[in-house]
Design a protein around this nucleic acid. Structure first.
Lengths: 213, 213
DNA sequence: GTTGCAATTGTGCAAGCGTATAATTGGATG
DNA sequence: CATCCAATTATACGCTTGCACAATTGCAAC
């Protein structure tokens, strides 16, 4: 009571501050949805005071959008890295891409929490919806490129259908692994995913699995 | 102002009242997540006053749980009906089951909204988690039964892996159809799903499609 | 019909929300 | 080392939330 002291602070670059807030918001959303990411909770987790958030973001919705965009960019980047570090052999590249999506850290209850937390806002907000569309179709295009590189013959229509199907397999298995991790043994889903994608395309990807793990 | 009249009302059976509230809650959750399903909003949509909700449910969490259970029961029932009205031929039954999951009314932004709205609570609340587990595994078991009925030879381990894979295909395509309906032409995803499930199992389900549509 | 009681409505409260805005202070600049 | 301004903290407001509890009323039983 005697000491009505103000909180001491240090000035930090704008970029760093914004990313600190975004990171805090994403953690909270992953845990409890957008509702849990209150301005006060974000500020506490980021080690700042609520007022500062308003200084960097016009509104909470503004912060939410920035967080979603940041998340999508990070995901796209992670996929690019997987492919950069993969070999040149088409089958091996596809196998690495599929397996990476079905193992930690991509498979993780927190990442599903983020997905679920955002998807409602994505449906309602046209701006977020566009980000979602571009990211989703971009991911599918990369997958389609990997499929097209396989030593087979396939026309465009078939490639599109195959990419959609394989993307569905990946998404579905990812979802189930995140939602009920204890229902599967380690690497079971990655193996099932490789077999299923292989069955869709008429190739055997399981021979590539040793390379990955 | 002069007339400070009370809202007139009629007494209704407990069962009906509870289901009215649950239906209202589900509609709101589908649109805007659990956060949008406030006690006041639920009461308004159900045509009652907020106080009555407390009379039938100890807390909002209690209502949320009841709503989730009701939703899962309805889904399970809908699947049973699809199979009841299908033919006896194993391939046709499987095809009907897959196609039903990839068309309206199962494919619908609102149903994905419900899913996303609940999944966070499901992860956090052990009671809801158990409901989820039982429902999910039950669905997969039905699917595995349909696969086992096909005229093929398959051991238990292979059946399990195939059921997981096919369930993944269905869930993943369902998700994509709900999230970006405009990215696909009508029935495209049902066709892709049938082809993909068929490829996983080594059978051709597309010959069954005329029966369904 | 009158009575009785559970079903229903109405009111109020403490807590938390997003946001606006005033008051401070860190640190670069000269 | 004094100046100055943006970065940061602090305070306050109006609104909504879940919940508790008191006041009414429909309706079945007698």
């Amino acid at each position: 009571m005697t000491t009505g002291e103000r909180k001491p602070y240090k000035r930090v670059g704008e970029e760093v501050r914004r990313e600190t807030m975004i990171a805090a918001a994403l953690e909270l959303i992953a845990e409890g949805g957008i509702a849990a990411a209150t301005v006060r909770a974000i500020a506490q987790k980021a080690g700042i005071t609520p007022g500062l958030i308003r200084h960097y973001f016009r509104s909470k919705e503004d912060l939410t959008r920035a967080a979603y965009q940041s998340l999508m960019e990070r995901m796209t980047l992670a996929n690019a890295i997987v492919l950069d570090t993969a070999s040149d052999e088409p089958k091996a590249r596809l196998a690495a891409f599929v397996a990476a999506a079905l193992r930690p850290p991509v498979v993780d209850p927190a990442s599903m929490g983020l997905w679920a937390g955002f998807i409602l806002s994505v449906q309602r907000d046209p701006e977020l919806r566009e980000v979602h569309r571009v990211t989703y179709l971009g991911y599918r295009d990369v997958l389609q490129g990997l499929i097209a590189a396989l030593p087979r013959e396939a026309d465009a229509a078939r490639l599109r259908a195959e990419a959609i199907a394989c993307n569905g397999v990946i998404d579905g298995l990812w979802l189930e692994a995140c939602a009920l991790p204890e229902a599967f043994v380690k690497d079971e889903l990655a193996e099932i995913g490789l077999r299923s994608v292989g069955a869709n395309l008429g190739v055997n990807l399981l021979t590539e699995i040793e390379i990955i793990s």
